[in-house]
Amino acid sequence: MPLRDHFRGWLDQEMKWHSFHQAWATYIAEALTTRLPEGFRASPNVQTAIEIDVAAFGGARTPPRAPTDREEPAWQPSGGTLTLPFEVTEPATEVLVHGRRDGSYLAAAIELVSEGNKDRAEAREAFIAKCETYLQQGVGLVIVDLVTTRAANLHDGLLARVSPTAPVWGERLYATAYSPQGKNGAAKLTVWQEPLAIGAALPTMPLWLLHGPCVPVQLEATYEDTFRRLRLPTEGP
């Protein structure tokens, strides 16, 4: 199902982005759960010291899945759009404390951009700083920006923070994925960039798990599923 404009016109009248945003995060997390290996789990709309739309946790004490007759082969993403030099810190204190507290650690995060993330310089800086912290801790990240009413590119702002030599992309709507790997002077950040367009299908993005494999985030399938479950029309009057 092609991407719709959630911020102007008939769909904005049917349901505000905030409501769709929360539901989509839930269904993305639900879809991820079927693909995560043992010991990982996905949670939507995580509210801690910071807000994460969809989080993947490692170290969870989850019961093993029953074996199936036909196991799907491990999913492999295409090559990244670009690779940048990047320093991954040792495991951050915040992650270590979290791990000791409840036996789990943040392994990956998915951010669905809202208008509030882009409307003021302070909000943009807060979003970028949050995402930079994930990457510095070695946490895999996916950003999805469908906001048609604000021109700021948070991805470009993030890359400018982590690597001053990164090229400026400038897309208004996009999905991006980030894999920080390595340390001790040999670290790198691999980036996947997919431009989005109203009327076009959404891509599948790679989500890299800290201490785990890469799993697909099926944006198109979960986007369509959200419309169906919320009983939203796919076309205006």
Rank of each mutant, 00 (worst) to 15 (best):
M1S: 00
D5N: 03
H6D: 04
R8L: 08
G9Y: 00
E14Q: 13
M15G: 01
M15T: 03
S19D: 15
H21V: 02
W24G: 06
I28D: 06
A29F: 05
L32P: 04
T34N: 10
G39H: 03
N45Q: 02
Q47N: 11
T48V: 08
I50C: 09
E51C: 13
D53E: 02
A56M: 06
R61L: 12
P63A: 02
R65V: 09
T68V: 09
D69V: 13
R70T: 04
Q76L: 15
L84H: 00
P85H: 02
E90G: 13
P91Y: 02
H98C: 13
G99D: 10
D102Y: 09
G103T: 08
Y105S: 03
A109I: 11
A109P: 09
E111A: 01
L112M: 10
S114C: 13
E115K: 15
G116W: 12
K118E: 03
E125M: 14
Y134V: 00
Q136C: 14
V139L: 03
D145K: 01
T149I: 07
R150D: 14
A152S: 10
A152D: 08
G157E: 01
G157Q: 01
R161P: 14
V162A: 07
S163Y: 04
T165I: 04
T165Y: 03
P167Y: 03
T176M: 00
T176K: 00
A177F: 00
S179I: 06
S179N: 05
K183Y: 09
G185S: 07
A186R: 14
A187S: 12
T190S: 07
W192H: 07
E194Q: 09
E194R: 08
E194F: 15
A197M: 06
G199D: 05
A201E: 11
P203L: 06
T204M: 14
T204Y: 06
P206S: 07
P206M: 12
H211V: 09
V217T: 06
Q218L: 14
A221G: 10
A221C: 12
E224L: 12
D225T: 14
L232M: 15
L232T: 12
P233Y: 04
T234M: 10
T234D: 08
P237M: 10
